[in-house]
Write a protein that binds this DNA or RNA. Structure first.
Length: 205
DNA sequence: CCCTGATTCGC
DNA sequence: GCGAATCAGG
């Protein structure tokens, strides 16, 4: 394969769109990501920055790193279940808040350690780590525009399996962005999928 | 381990 | 000019 005008054009376009070298290589076919990167450099469009102007804020970072995790105070990471298959899952659509939530079921018989709350209310929402952070939501909306819109069959172990759209229509796909390590979703979707826990849920008897 | 781009250097 | 190998990160 050689760098025909057409292929170079595709390269430029995709690179400008913020696509990764490997994605571009995959799209073009017949080339590796190394070839793409090499070409990118030779074309001199590695970083679209020339006038000493810096871009400290990094407005449109192709990498998804904004994942503010409130760090659950006393929640040892809820593990819904290791289902590898596409879960029936949440249905975000736009700003909905799915709740995979795994209730730890706090039994009064707990023989845990020190933080034995007095009596009455088990755990007043002190940290108030509930609710999805607005930034996580914003991140989700942002990332869904950039979704790869994969079909069910195109999903792999490392693509985000967050459903977008209505399954009943043809306007439905999966996020498809690189999933977080060992997780079913990309960083942005992990942020809204795994919440510490809903409010409280006392059920004494 | 998966991925990213950056650089080198024989071809 | 090309791109595999390698490097340096996340």
């Amino acid at each position: 394969m050689s760098w025909t005008d057409e292929r170079v054009e595709t390269l430029k376009r995709m690179w400008a769109e913020g696509q990764s070298a490997s994605q571009i290589a995959k799209e073009l076919g017949g080339v590796t990501r190394n070839a793409v990167i090499g070409k990118v450099h030779r074309l001199g469009l590695s970083n679209r920055n020339e006038d000493g102007t810096e871009m400290p804020a990094a407005p449109a970072a192709p990498e998804a790193k904004p994942a503010p995790q409130p760090t659950a105070a006393a929640a040892p990471a809820p593990q819904p279940k290791p289902t590898p298959a596409p879960e029936p899952a949440p249905k975000p659509a736009a700003a909905a808040a799915p709740q995979p939530e795994a209730a730890p079921a706090p039994q009064p018989v707990n023989f845990n350690r020190r933080p034995i709350v007095p009596a009455g209310q088990p755990l007043p929402p002190q940290p108030s780590a509930n609710e999805i952070s607005p930034e996580a939501l914003a991140s989700v909306r942002e990332v869904e525009k950039r979704a790869r819109k994969l079909s069910l069959m195109e999903l792999t172990e490392r693509t985000c399996k967050w459903p977008i759209g209505d399954p009943a229509t043809d306007k439905f796909w999966f996020c498809g962005l690189p999933s977080a390590a060992g997780k079913p979703y990309c960083e942005a979707h992990v942020g809204v999928a795994f919440q510490p826990m809903s409010s409280r849920r006392d059920r004494r008897r």
